[in-house]
Design a protein around this nucleic acid. Structure first.
Lengths: 189, 189
DNA sequence: AGTTTAGGAATGAATGTTCATTCCGTACAT
DNA sequence: ATGTACGGAATGAACATTCATTCCTAAACT
């Protein structure tokens, strides 16, 4: 039960930060959404910045593990791409607002060193994958960060549309977006 | 001279909103950056929301004109894509922070109806282009909004990297990003 | 030409509001 | 009863906005 309140706070904070952004989200808003007194938040988190950093590190950590776990090191580049893409989909299904929260807050002024390290590590997974692919001439010769942006751009916008109810999720759609991202990133002759 | 102060305020606001976001930017910050008194801002703009909406509408308007002007209606899809991409590059060269500001604030809670209309119109230019391309089977059959996101994702991240000094601008790089975005969006057999 | 003066522009200290954070009374558990 | 967890009112800081005052400019006057 003790842990339930903490989880409620984290869950509400994630949703609100993703929807309105850190600065536009007030502690009373979070407390209200979590059905908890404002003071209770301070029993679990030293202050608002600690709360947002905790949230950030937690979700970056979860996503990182998910991407690294069972990574097919011995497979081909396309297969590895599929693994990463699929795990991204899974992560989003399990934590509706987390990816959007991470992407929109990764360069924020209030992130501490630990959060930045976590994020750098997450990004390095993708960057290393792309760099290895470039060596093998299977990935386009462009800055890896730009390629990552294309992948995330497409993926996140898809999420937004699904969440807004503007389009239906389907295997076919996911397959299409995966192909689009892959074509953006892969080496063409 | 009278108009200079207004321009200074708009310019400073654009930079700060792009770098820190609307909510994390205070009026005194803008006043300080623009080298005017805080009160002066209220001589030109009724309040902070009017300021941000003015800024938003102005830049969306400029970008819209730029994309529509000389649009090669009679050309092929690839050529039209080139036109749009090139105008995006030009817009960014002329207004360093504007595109990033637009993209990061387009769904914000403080935008008024007029701002939303402006933005909808801008997006519709891109959407219509993609929809026509899909009919001709030259553009991938995916939700247009997702395709737009991929294009903007790649383009904006490129901007960020250039601004951060992490990569050099070059004709070659731009060409590469254009190709990547095009491959993401075009129909493959 | 030099001086005066009216009126708009600009300022930044003052005001009221909103927020993060603290504090204390209450309720529940042991 | 004593201790622990809570809630929400209380507090102080920071903010957006206002306003009394100063500063400029340029036209009118000598």
């Amino acid at each position: 039960m003790a842990t339930t309140k903490r989880d409620n706070i984290l869950h509400s904070a994630l949703t609100l930060f993703a929807e309105r952004g850190f600065d536009a989200t007030t502690i009373p808003m979070i407390a209200n959404d979590a059905r908890v007194g404002a003071g209770t938040i301070y029993r679990y988190f030293e202050n608002k910045e600690v709360l947002v950093n905790t949230l950030f590190q937690h979700h970056v950590g979860v996503l990182t593990s998910l991407l690294e776990e069972d990574f097919p090191h011995q497979s081909g580049v396309r297969n590895q791409f599929h693994h990463l893409f699929h795990r991204l989909v899974r992560f989003t299904n399990e934590h509706e607002h987390a990816l959007y929260f991470i992407k929109t807050h990764n360069a924020a002024y209030f992130l501490d060193d630990r959060s930045k390290d976590y994020f750098t590590h997450l990004w390095s997974i993708l960057r290393d994958f792309l760099d290895r692919g470039k060596e093998k001439k299977e990935i386009r010769d462009l800055p890896s960060l730009a390629l990552i942006a294309i992948i995330f751009g497409g993926f996140l916008e898809l999420q937004q549309l699904i969440r807004a109810g503007e389009i239906e999720v389907s295997e076919e759609l996911l397959k299409g977006v995966e192909e689009s991202c892959w074509d953006a990133v892969r080496h063409h002759d």
